[in-house]
């Protein structure tokens, strides 16, 4: 059974009196431990797919299953719980909470899960060391570089050992060297922890480093292929 299964998914957004079809007849299976990129131009539906898998948006039609459970038909509360336990998000513009320190940002999901403070701190210390940002725990996001902020965002996504990490254009605001480093890091985490990574990107660097490339155009699946390392 695949970890993620999207079947005939359609997503339509109302825009004034019109309706915009963001995704149409879209089906996709992703197994545990995959390192997949959703590629395509802007408006092709990459972010919509990530949002639907992550349970922060719901399909107009079709079925989305994660570990065999239908994500699209859950209550708001159940979806929040699902995201907390199973999904890690990494955003293009990092989206760290500016008033919290790097460590507090990273441990936020653990706090929501009810983990004790000493246990949270221990987990974050190990994670920060692993991600090469040890010693930056008490800095505020504004005192970190873009690459450091994105690593903190990765730490936040990884902290609760989610089954899937969804990264929406994670390298868009990074220089190529920092982006390369971040991709190395994610590859390593993918290998070590068998965490499933799904990216959306039109960055050739990200696409070249992915094992599977799913191309979208105008909300439809254009191409789906596995590339050799």
């Amino acid at each position: 059974m695949p970890l993620i299964q999207l079947t005939d998914v359609e997503k339509i957004y109302p825009l004034g009196n019109q309706q915009v079809v963001a995704l149409s007849e879209f089906s996709l299976s992703i197994d545990k431990g995959e390192f997949t990129v959703l590629a395509g131009p802007s408006g092709s539906g990459k972010t919509t797919v990530l949002n639907l898998i992550g349970g922060i948006d719901q399909p107009t039609r079709g079925r989305i299953e994660i570990e065999g459970r239908d994500v699209g038909r859950r209550s708001t509360r159940a979806l929040a719980d699902f995201r907390l336990r199973h999904i890690g998000f990494i955003f293009q513009s990092y989206n760290l909470i500016p008033v919290l320190t790097a460590a507090e940002n990273a441990e936020f999901t653990l706090m929501l899960q009810g983990m004790t403070k000493p246990a949270r701190r221990a987990r974050i210390r190990d994670l920060f060391a692993d991600l090469g940002i040890g010693g930056l725990e008490n800095r505020k996001p504004r005192d970190l570089s873009g690459g450091q902020q994105q690593r903190v965002a990765v730490a936040r996504a990884m902290a609760s050992h989610p089954a899937v990490i969804l990264a929406d254009e994670p390298t868009a605001n990074l220089d190529s060297q920092t982006a390369e480093g971040l991709l190395d890091l994610m590859h390593r985490l993918n290998r070590q922890h068998h965490t499933t990574f799904i990216f959306s990107s039109h960055d050739p660097l990200v696409i070249s480093r992915a094992r599977r490339i799913v191309r979208l155009r105008d909300g439809r699946l254009e191409d789906d292929r596995v590339q050799q390392p």
Binding site: A80, R83, F89, L112
Partner: peptide
Amino acid sequence: TREFGVLMAIGMRTWQ
């Protein structure tokens, strides 16, 4: 608004 979106995306419940 965007920050609340992030908090919700990472699992914060509406009552929180």
